[in-house]
Computed example of a mutant assay.
Amino acid sequence: MSSKEKPLHSFDDSNAVLIKDHISHEETFVEVFEYAFQKLRDPWYKTFLFGIMAGFFVAIAYVIVIVALSGFIIKDSNGNLKPNGMPSGMIALITGLTFTPAILMVIFIGGTLFTSNSLTLLPIVKREAKLRRMLVNLSLVLVGNCLGALIVAISTYLMGHMKVDSEFYNAFKYIYDKKIGSSPSNLNWTVFLKNFVSGIYCNILIAGLFWMNMSVKNSATKVLLCFFVILAFGISGFQHIVANAYVWMTGLFLNNGMVGQDFGTFSIMNMLPTLLGNFIGGSVVLPMVYLLVFKKRINAEIAAGKFFKGTKL
């Protein structure tokens, strides 16, 4: 073998390129800030349509969850719904294991969730965008998310899943009642507070998941991150505004003679506190500590014109 030739198994260190499987905390936060800025720059129709698709994906995942629980929820002698000899922790585990496809579809196909878009407060705090821009963005996303959920809710009814006392119906009603308390006709402010705090913790997980995905470039790693975080979300039972939108909309098809009353109660006892909690968790509790820690880097990137081109938003 000549001196110029090298065996096939040799490794030329001079041409090696170090590929990191993740970036630093500081670099990740820069990516998060840029993500938030880009979401505010998106045209309104993209924001709205991506909101519909994300709501659609999440609602489909909720159908999967309910089908997985069907048969495990029965009525006792008093007509109350309860697990059929299954610990509540197992129901939570099934929920976590079956909800992952929703976020995977949002990440890999495309979609926008109200929860992840709560991060758009970051450019507002740094005065790089106007508050009105964020409010319009979040409103479009939220309406889109609810519309996507409504489409699947109507489909659920048309497929015959909402027949009274069917396995699907019982599993759905069990979930529905737990989200607003055992007495839907009464406004229980303890439930309101519980859902508010639960919403905060929920979006620390969900917005945090999108944040974590920006720190890695490998698709397999993204899938694993999604699996474990959504598993934790499902087990915890934390309240997610988009997931709850499907339950809220499908509740219109409950055959209980009090649909209008239940719809209003669910709006006040669950949707409102969850919405507020999700926003605070994803826009204040999670990112503001890191904005303080990495303030110098973000200020330098803003001064260099990294996040916007031309006029500010």
Rank of each mutant, 00 (worst) to 15 (best):
S2V: 09
S3T: 10
D12N: 12
S14A: 13
N15E: 08
I19D: 04
I23V: 01
E26L: 08
E31R: 15
A36W: 10
W44F: 11
I52V: 13
F56L: 06
A61G: 07
V65E: 08
V67K: 00
L69R: 07
I74W: 04
D76K: 01
S77Y: 13
S77P: 03
N84Y: 00
G85F: 02
G89I: 15
M90I: 14
L93V: 08
L121K: 03
A129Y: 09
L131N: 03
L131D: 03
R133S: 06
R133D: 05
L135W: 05
G148H: 00
L150D: 00
Y157K: 12
H161V: 01
M162L: 12
E167A: 15
D177H: 02
S183P: 00
P184I: 09
N188R: 06
V191A: 02
I200V: 11
I206Y: 04
A207E: 05
L209T: 11
M214K: 14
T221W: 06
F228S: 09
I235G: 07
Q239P: 01
H240F: 11
H240C: 10
Y246G: 11
V247S: 12
N256T: 09
T265M: 01
S267T: 14
L276V: 09
G277H: 10
G281H: 11
V293G: 06
K296V: 07
F307I: 01
